[in-house]
Write a protein that binds this DNA or RNA. Structure first.
Length: 831
RNA sequence: GCCGGAGUGGCGGAAUUGGCAGACGCGCACGACUCAAAAUCGUGUUCCUACGGGAAUGAGGGUUCGAUUCCCUCCUUCGGCACCA
């Protein structure tokens, strides 16, 4: 080796190994039934054109764990692809005229290169790109299967529309208390449009079950809150005949979670948009009602949604009959009742609902208490100062008087249970469940997405495009104009086709699909991205599915992660996939913030570019630092100085392995200590990999390296223990820093490749200590430490502790009241 | 308002889930090497201290021989939902 430069040059050696791994197809995964399989999936990126440090933060620890699982003996599938349809490419096209297809595929090319610089074990043979016709053919086909299963339907309704993106959005894609578009932050508006939906609500109850899957509690909670199941009753109210409406409109249904307060319902409130409002409004109230409706329509959802806003409303002149006590109660309209929840009409119980109370006070409507608070006398509606929402007993409620009321929801509340039974017997109402969750609106009025493969004929209506005509391909020659209509609609010829039923003239659907549809099944396309007889090869499915570990950001909790669960269940019921859940284990990484602690953004100028870091330090150092600098699930601000620690660690390992001092003068004790530390570290690192605790993997390895430097100093560098130490050390490093591990593995003369080596086994005997140091506390404060042999009895430990001079000093001659030996690890003397 | 996460040195974080608080690293200080600097190596680094000790894991209380860890009350902060009937 004389004359050769033996310094650590990551730029050279990383490229060298990346090329060799690729040439050797080291990371190709194929079905191998002799091994247990492990499908490790990490969320695929959108091809924005540049790999962000956030991508590295998400992907490299996932890669390290996939590598670890491979060394543990699993046949690991770790694929990568691109979620390539979507608005940014199309918006850029509007701006500069570059075709989204061209831009997208250029970006993908660039990002593939950047990803290769990570040294990740992606199997590129399985790459899937959602914007490629061979992919979206099957996105279309899957849409048709859902349509055939009755899970896709077209409906005219008031939907959320982003005026900046010029398209409708699904409810999940409207965010926050100011109801903004998830993509661009513009407040959405409502529009009445004919759109395609998936019947996701059919699965609401099943989506609330997380049995058998290991997902973070946070995600389960977010999804549960999003679906927001609420138990209550539907109750029928008759509309008073004197209101002058015909009999078929004489009934109105309301949903309530508090049927036990029915006797206190003293008025009804309809949403201003409720279709019945027009029919029931009396001539003398017509003008006021029309004016109020117009005013409500002008207001945005945000203005209407402000909870602290003063209640407003107008009387319709109509009355309803409270079915439990025949009371004739006025019907009002008010914008605090939303058409989009429940039935768009409520029974108002001002005595026991804060909103109804405020409304009743303002418009001087009657307030009738029907719950007597515990330990208090009955309230008087006329003098009440606030709605009462606590526990008590039912009063003013006929034969149900005296029934206990608590604050539980549903049948757990005795009063609600009693009323539900009573309503059922009388045929007035029935137990009912309501959800906030809505069906998934998938139509988008944009070009750059998978076409919805449906055709409309004047005679035969909507029909799916026949399988042999799939995919419905996107035309390339379109005009980019943000008109609010799909560019496909403006294309002169594309939409004209023939009816699959009668062959007569017909028109294609010109909206495209929500890109979340493409990403709901990409994990299936990875299985066989070139397969052309179906969305995936069943043999690959049977071997690899379900996904064993899924990693990605938590921001998708109520979007992608909910859509893909729904989609899997829908495909299961259509007989296309098996099992109830697509992803068994989910782990979320946190976010890397800018050095200023703010979210990284180009406008703030705090973006960290991984390419620059790779050029400067090498991919291994970047990988190690990413895994080290924060708890993975938490994330943290980036620290440009901090990376020096990871760089030094790697250099010191390089020095340790390449520049040994082969002495064998170490004492038996030194050698034994070295082995102990190695196997203790191995145990810890193994456990940490299992638990996704990446930061402590690196710190354990650093600590071990420091010990090894000491052992070398003590003359261990030529011993058998040293050789074992180096081998195990490199294997533990391999998943984290694959290039340097491979290089040093080769340099110590071991056979290629370290990445196909088995994970070392812990020698439990070697980890055992000969003697242990036990802290001795007096009244909970450590005063001394005594060393006892392993396996010493409690009495021996006690005796050793009491024999300590320092301890005796603090006892001040007093007799200990109690001596506690905690698990043989600590002594506490109480005086 | 409701639901969930987080709060530990100058900084990122550790602590076998009730048993030595601050591992590992950054930064900083001092030293070695050097004419010098960088790099590298070594030592130290929670705070206060009358050098005996004392205090400290967002604040206050509780349980316990013992609490960063469990319980109660509150504060700060991040995220989600929200006139949801």
């Amino acid at each position: 080796m004389r004359g050769q430069d033996r310094s650590y040059q990551p730029q050279v050696l990383e490229k060298k190994w990346q090329n060799k791994w690729e040439a050797d197809q080291l990371y190709r995964s194929v079905i191998d039934k002799s091994k247990p399989k492990h499908y490790a999936l990490t969320m695929l990126p959108y091809p924005s054109g540049d790999l962000h440090i956030g991508h590295w933060y998400a992907m490299t620890p996932s890669d390290a764990r996939a590598r670890y699982m491979r060394m543990k003996g699993y046949n690991v599938l770790f694929p990568m692809g691109f979620d390539a349809f979507g608005l940014p490419a199309e918006n850029a096209a509007i701006k500069d005229g570059i075709h989204p297809m061209k831009r997208t595929f250029q970006n993908i090319e660039r990002m593939r290169k950047q990803m290769r610089s990570m040294g990740a074990m992606f199997d590129w043979e399985r790459e899937a790109v959602s914007a490629a016709p061979e992919y979206y053919k099957w996105t279309e086909w899957l849409f048709i299967q859902l349509y055939k299963a009755g899970l896709a339907y077209r409906k005219m309704s008031a939907v959320d529309w982003c005026p900046s993106c010029n398209t409708t959005l699904a409810r999940e894609q409207v965010k926050g208390d100011d109801r903004v578009c998830d993509r661009c932050g513009t407040p959405v508006i409502k529009k009445d449009l004919d759109q395609w939906f998936f019947k996701a609500t059919k699965y609401a109850d099943e989506l609330l079950k997380f049995d058998g899957i290991d997902w973070p509690q946070t995600v389960k909670t977010l999804q549960t809150n999003w679906i927001d199941r609420s138990e209550g009753a539907e109750v029928q109210f008759k509309i008073d005949r004197e209101s002058g409406i015909d009999s078929q409109d004489s009934q109105i249904t309301v949903f309530t979670t508090r049927p036990d307060t029915l006797w206190g319902a003293t008025f009804m409130v309809f949403s201003p948009e409720h279709p019945l409002v027009e029919k029931i409004t009396t001539p003398e109230n017509k003008a006021a009602v029309e004016e109020y409706k117009a005013q409500a329509a002008r207001q945005t959802e945000i203005q209407r949604g402000a909870a602290d806003k003063e209640k407003t409303g107008v009387f319709t002149g109509a009355y309803a009959i409270n079915p439990v006590n025949e009371a004739r109660i006025p019907i009002w309209i008010a914008d605090y009742v939303m058409m989009s929840y429940g039935t768009g009409a409520i029974m108002a119980v001002p005595a026991h609902d804060e909103r109804d109370f405020a409304f009743a006070k303002k418009y001087e409507l009657p307030i009738v208490p029907v719950i007597q608070p515990e330990g208090q006398s009955e309230a008087d509606g006329a003098t009440m100062e606030a709605a009462f929402v606590g526990s008590g007993v039912m009063v003013n409620s006929g034969m149900l008087n005296g029934t206990k009321v608590n604050t539980e929801k549903g049948r757990k509340n005795p009063s609600i249970a009693a009323v539900l039974d009573w309503l059922g017997d009388k045929g007035i109402g029935k137990e009912s469940v309501n959800y906030r969750y809505r069906d998934w609106l998938i139509s988008r009025q944009r070009y750059w997405g998978a076409p919805i493969p449906m055709v409309n004929c004047e005679i035969h209506g909507w029909n799916p495009v026949p399988d042999d005509q799939l995919p419905v391909e996107l035309p390339e020659d379109v005009e980019w104009r943000p008109t609010g209509e799909s560019p496909l609609k403006l294309h002169p010829t594309w939409k004209h086709t023939t009816c699959p039923v009668c062959n007569g003239p017909a028109v294609r659907e010109t909206d495209t699909m929500d890109t979340f549809m493409c990403s709901s099944w990409y994990h299936l396309r990875y299985l066989s991205p070139k397969y052309d007889k179906g969305p995936f090869d069943p043999a690959e499915y049977d071997y690899w599915m379900p996904v064993d570990t899924y990693t990605g950001g938590i921001e998708h909790a109520t979007m992608h992660l909910l859509y893909t669960r729904f989609f899997h269940k829908a495909l299961r019921d259509a007989g296309i996939v098996k099992g109830d859940e697509p992803m068994m284990q989910l782990r979320n990484q946190g976010m890397v913030l800018g050095e200023d602690g703010d979210k990284m953004s180009k406008s703030k100028g705090n973006v960290i570019a991984p390419d620059v870091l790779v050029n400067k330090y090498g991919a291994d150092s970047v990988r190690a630092y990413i895994m080290f600098f924060a708890r993975w699930e938490m994330g943290a601000p980036w620290d440009s100085q901090g990376i020096e620690g990871a760089v030094r660690w790697i250099k010191r390992v390089w020095t340790l392995v390449t520049d040994p001092t082969p002495t064998t003068t170490a004492s038996e004790g030194t050698k034994k200590n070295l082995r102990r530390k190695i196997h203790q570290t191995l145990r810890k690192v193994t456990r940490d990999f299992d638990n996704f605790e990446f930061n402590t993997i690196i710190s354990s390895l650093m600590e071990l390296m420091n010990e090894m430097y000491k052992a070398r100093e003590a003359g261990a560098a030529g011993t058998a223990e040293w050789k074992e130490a180096i081998e195990i050390y490199l294997k533990m490093m391999a998943p984290v820093t694959p290039h340097i591990a491979e290089e040093l593995w080769a340099q110590i003369g071991k056979p290629y490749s370290i990445h196909t080596q088995p994970w070392p086994a812990v020698d439990e005997d070697a980890t055992k200590e000969d003697s242990i140091e036990i802290p001795v506390q007096v009244n909970g404060k450590v005063r001394d430490r005594v060393t006892v042999p392993v396996g010493a009895s409690e009495d021996e430990i006690k005796a050793a502790a009491l024999a300590s001079e320092a301890v005796q000093k603090f006892l001040e001659g007093k007799e200990p009241r109690k001596v506690i030996v905690a698990n043989g690890r600590l002594v506490n003397i109480v005086v």
